[in-house]
Simulated scan of single mutants.
Amino acid sequence: MKENVNNFFKNIFNPDGSSTGKSAFPPTPMKVLIRKEIGSHIRSWRFIILIALIVLTFGASLFVSFSGLRETINNAQDPDSAFVYLKLLTTSDNSIPPFHIFLNFLAPLLGIALGFDAINSEQNGGTLTRLVAQPLYRDNLILSKFFAPLIIVSVLFTSLCMLMIGAGIITTGINIEWQEVVRISGFIIISIIYVAFWLSLSILLSIVFRQGATSALTAIGIWLFFTVFFPIVINLIIRPFIPNPNYISEQEYLAWNNLILNLLRLSPSQLYTDATTTILMPSVRSLGPVSIEQMIGAIPSPLSFKDSLMIIWPQLTGITAAMMVCFALSYFVFMRREIRC
């Protein structure tokens, strides 16, 4: 009995790639594939260019935030003035957008660049058949294509926020509050999920299309549609049906505006904007129009992290569900696909 228990734990924690380590997670072949994918991404020029672009925009946004930080701290009418480090991510002098607005445009490009040729490049190069011929499962391959870029993105966003906190402590001498740490961590997690959605979508397109240029153009076209053209289309369709505000009640007018906002939230970029704005600005109490009756008695004070999380819970679950659906489709298509030379 004792030998059986010892063998059970050896099978779970066995570090080598022998047959006795089948219960270990992640399996050894998947670890090797993840290390290989991380190394190939880090050495690629497109990743270096995107990293340089994100770091430059982060530095520019941080410089603008530091330049107006003293006025922001001394503004007694701002309920968020006590959260110095959240202000570094949201404050701007209108010359350039704040960092979370920049990231709304750059994060999809990062996810698309890391996944648009994940499968078709292996197939065109003739290495996909060699990988499948090895003693590893197909799901290890598709999971490594998904998790390796997410590890890189997680390290990138965490490092940038840590640099921002360190620069703030050195410059201002103000210690960071626990709620600021929690909200910045939530911002990082939401950004990673947002990148994961575009990464899973680009991996799906790389499986469907054989040419990398076709999958890249399709992914960029979807991103441009939801980011630029989708709000225009919604306004063109809905605006003619909205009655004159002078002839309807306030509740009916608010209902029409809520309808427009709900339709706009079909776009992932709108969901990300709502979620990051609420997380980084504790004073945000609503993501839609509020009537005068609802504003009576409201005190302009910051919300707790739990209350802010409850406000953005539909947006967070929407982004997560879209990411899971795209990855499930890519997993299903890849597992059932016939791989030939």
Rank of each mutant, 00 (worst) to 15 (best):
M1C: 10
E3D: 03
V5Q: 12
N7T: 03
F8M: 07
N11C: 13
N11V: 02
N11K: 13
P26L: 06
T28D: 06
E37M: 04
S40P: 01
H41Y: 11
R43Q: 05
I48V: 12
L53I: 15
L53Q: 05
L62F: 15
S65E: 00
S67E: 00
N75Y: 00
N75S: 03
N75M: 04
S81M: 05
L88D: 07
D93S: 05
N94R: 04
I96Q: 07
F99V: 04
I101P: 02
G111K: 10
G111M: 09
I119F: 01
Q123H: 09
N124P: 00
T127L: 15
R130C: 12
V132D: 10
N140T: 12
F146A: 04
L150I: 11
I151G: 07
T158P: 01
T158C: 03
L160V: 11
M164Q: 08
A167C: 14
G168C: 02
I170F: 05
I170T: 03
I174V: 13
E177T: 11
E177H: 12
I188H: 01
S191E: 00
R210A: 11
G212W: 10
T214N: 05
G221L: 10
L224C: 03
F229Y: 06
V233G: 00
N235H: 09
R239G: 01
I242M: 09
N246E: 14
N246G: 05
S249G: 15
E250G: 09
E252S: 14
E252G: 02
I260S: 09
A275H: 08
S283C: 00
R285F: 10
S286W: 12
I292E: 06
I296R: 08
L303I: 04
D307R: 10
T317S: 01
T317M: 08
T317H: 02
A321M: 09
A322Y: 14
M324H: 14
M324Y: 15
F327R: 02
F332K: 12
R337I: 13
E338Q: 13
E338W: 05
C341I: 15
